[in-house]
């Protein structure tokens, strides 16, 4: 791959180097880590409550908007991140208490429709409050600009921080689920709902907690990504669908599967977009290599998903 010719939009040919490739690897890692924050909540909610939640993307959006609003008012990025966690967790708890808990015993069709209805309400409500124009969340001063990594790789410090924060949250989540008493209850809830209710655990409270936790993770991801992309209505759904791909690949209900799936999807998407047009460039003329390459690479993660489905329909770490 090194040395293959690559045509950037400006039209000048230059050689792909190790640093460029390393940079794309880091981008893939960063994307994967963000997808994990989204997917962890989805897969937990499905594993424990058996609920498919289309409105998870709305919670991502709520987090991003809360962060943008607080950052605009206070100028503090830390406060903005805390606001995103609080707002998304609160929104999650409210919809769990009012609507979602009525859906646990319904079939998947009802869950899909009710949470689709929630998306409509969240999206239009947000548009009503904040307007249709995208908001901007600035990268904090301390984290702006590039950093030089070993090997001479220049990489934006903020993206590197996202990778660090994301991996930290992932570690915390694994520790919570594997080591704390709440984690034991969550795992017990996944294994046998009736039994842990019979053993005196307040299952309703546990459900609200799990849902709010998933919501907070989604909102946090929304705020972190919001500083790289713009904060706008409808930002949650593309990520939601990618998170679905992640948990289908990893196996629904498995946190470990979500982590592996998220990294696989993040890497496949980023490297596919980067490498496919170049590899096609060896056999096609440059302009069609770029157009075909970009069209095919936009499908790469779905092809990955199809491959996993043929190999293991229940996902890599799925039990069912």
């Amino acid at each position: 791959m090194v040395g293959g010719s690559y045509l950037p939009p400006t039209g000048t040919v230059f050689h792909m180097t190790f640093t460029l490739f390393a940079e794309q690897l880091l981008n893939g890692l960063q994307f994967g880590v963000m997808l994990f924050l989204m997917s962890a909540g989805l897969t937990l909610v499905f594993g424990v409550m058996g609920l498919i939640n289309l409105a998870h993307g709305s919670l991502y959006m709520v987090g991003a908007f809360a962060a943008a609003a607080v950052a605009a008012a206070t100028g503090s990025f830390v406060l903005a991140l805390m606001a995103s966690l609080a707002a998304a967790a609160a929104a999650g708890a409210i919809i769990e208490l009012t609507i979602i808990r009525r859906l646990y015993n319904r079939d998947h069709l009802d869950q899909v429709l009710a949470t689709f209805a929630l998306i409509l309400i969240f999206s239009e409500g947000t548009r009503w409050i904040f307007g249709s124009f995208p908001l901007f969340l600035d990268v904090p001063q301390a984290l702006s600009g590039p950093i030089t990594l070993p090997g001479g790789i220049e990489y934006p410090l903020y993206r590197l921080a996202i990778i660090g924060i994301g991996l930290g949250v992932a570690t915390g989540l694994f520790a919570m689920i594997n080591r704390t008493s709440v984690g034991i209850r969550i795992r017990a809830g996944e294994a046998d709902r009736e039994m842990i209710a019979a053993l005196g655990v307040d299952i309703a409270k546990l459900y609200t907690f799990v849902f709010a936790l998933g919501a907070a993770l989604a909102g946090f991801a929304g705020a972190l990504v919001g500083a790289i992309q713009s904060v706008q209505v409808g930002m949650g759904e593309p990520v939601l669908i990618l998170a679905f791909v992640v948990i289908v690949i990893g196996g629904i209900g498995s946190i470990k599967g979500a982590l592996v799936g998220a990294l696989l999807v993040g890497m496949t998407d980023t490297l596919g977009r980067f490498l496919l047009p170049q590899m096609l460039g060896w056999i096609l003329e440059p302009s069609s290599a770029i157009s075909i390459g970009s069209a095919v690479s936009s499908m790469s993660i779905y092809i990955l998903m199809a491959g996993v489905l043929i190999y293991r329909p229940q996902g890599l770490y799925g039990s069912g």
Binding site: A114, A117, L118, L120, I121, E124, G125, W128
Partner: peptide, 11 residues
């Protein structure tokens, strides 16, 4: 913002 009403009705 009629989608809000549609969402509420659907719910």
């Amino acid at each position: 913002f009629w989608h809000i009403y549609l969402g509420a009705l659907l719910l």
